[in-house]
Simulated scan of single mutants.
Amino acid sequence: MDILIKDLNEAQQKAVSQTEGPVMAIAGAGSGKTNVLTKRIAFLINNVGVPKDQILAITFTNKAANEMKVRIAKLLNAPTQSMWISTFHSMCARILREHIEYLGYDKRFQIIDDDDTVQMIKSIQKEKGIDTKTIDPRKLKTHVMNLKSEDVNISHYKEPLSGYLNIVFPEYVKRLKENNLVDFEDLIMLTIKLFKQETHLLNHYQKLFQYILVDEFQDTNNAQYE
């Protein structure tokens, strides 16, 4: 029996070694999902001969991604830095670093965090005369992110919130672009926009990734799924 699967139970062995067609592993916490996922990647490389850069493995936290890299490095006895093992946001950032110029940005774009986003929204509120005590910038930020992810549009909201968003949202988007900045929501949405706009890039990545593995798949939202 292959050394990669000899310590797995029958269901886990099947999840690792069934390499053709879709596979879904349904299991509770602490049942060895990460072990199966990492051994499946090692199996694809060692036993099937899939090049390391043609496997995309997605998880939800940087900690989980780093743990997967460490485990796979031990299984393969080889470095994993260049492999596509990351969160959705890190994957999209890597793609955008290569191709964002198609969307009118410079490749040296900076990624702003949630606090930076709140501060920019707060600054816009002050400039536009929207009292930050009447409407909390952090709450407004949540609605701005929902609009960016296209989960809703401004008509979804009632006054006075819709009025605030009509003022703040377009200005926020404009300032990001003018300053070559992207927020976390942009990482996902701009990558989707890139692939829809530049179909040759979409085709490139579709051909590049022979296998796509998603940890905690049930937690993906619509944008991540797309």
Rank of each mutant, 00 (worst) to 15 (best):
residue 28 G to K: 04
residue 28 G to L: 09
residue 29 A to T: 15
residue 29 A to Y: 07
residue 29 A to L: 08
residue 30 G to P: 06
residue 30 G to N: 15
residue 31 S to P: 07
residue 32 G to S: 08
residue 32 G to Q: 13
residue 34 T to W: 02
residue 38 T to D: 11
residue 38 T to H: 14
residue 39 K to L: 08
residue 42 A to V: 10
residue 43 F to L: 01
residue 44 L to H: 06
residue 47 N to M: 11
residue 50 V to G: 15
residue 50 V to D: 15
residue 51 P to A: 06
residue 51 P to V: 10
residue 51 P to Y: 09
residue 52 K to W: 02
residue 54 Q to D: 15
residue 54 Q to H: 13
residue 55 I to M: 01
residue 55 I to Q: 06
residue 56 L to G: 12
residue 57 A to P: 03
residue 57 A to M: 08
residue 57 A to Q: 12
residue 59 T to C: 10
residue 59 T to V: 09
residue 61 T to R: 09
residue 65 A to T: 13
residue 67 E to S: 12
residue 68 M to E: 15
residue 68 M to H: 05
residue 70 V to Y: 03
residue 73 A to N: 07
residue 74 K to W: 10
residue 75 L to Y: 04
residue 75 L to E: 05
residue 76 L to R: 13
residue 76 L to Y: 10
residue 81 Q to P: 04
residue 82 S to P: 02
residue 82 S to W: 05
residue 83 M to V: 10
residue 84 W to C: 04
residue 85 I to H: 10
residue 85 I to Q: 02
residue 86 S to A: 12
residue 88 F to D: 00
residue 89 H to G: 12
residue 89 H to Y: 04
residue 89 H to I: 14
residue 90 S to F: 06
residue 92 C to P: 01
residue 93 A to C: 14
residue 93 A to Y: 10
residue 93 A to W: 10
residue 96 L to W: 05
residue 98 E to I: 14
residue 99 H to Q: 13
residue 100 I to Q: 08
residue 101 E to R: 03
residue 102 Y to R: 10
residue 102 Y to I: 11
residue 102 Y to G: 02
residue 103 L to G: 06
residue 104 G to T: 02
residue 105 Y to S: 03
residue 106 D to P: 08
residue 109 F to A: 07
residue 112 I to V: 11
residue 113 D to P: 03
residue 115 D to P: 02
residue 115 D to L: 03
residue 118 V to I: 09
residue 119 Q to P: 01
residue 120 M to L: 04
residue 122 K to N: 13
residue 122 K to Y: 07
residue 123 S to R: 09
residue 123 S to T: 09
residue 124 I to G: 07
residue 124 I to M: 01
residue 125 Q to H: 03
residue 126 K to Q: 12
residue 127 E to A: 13
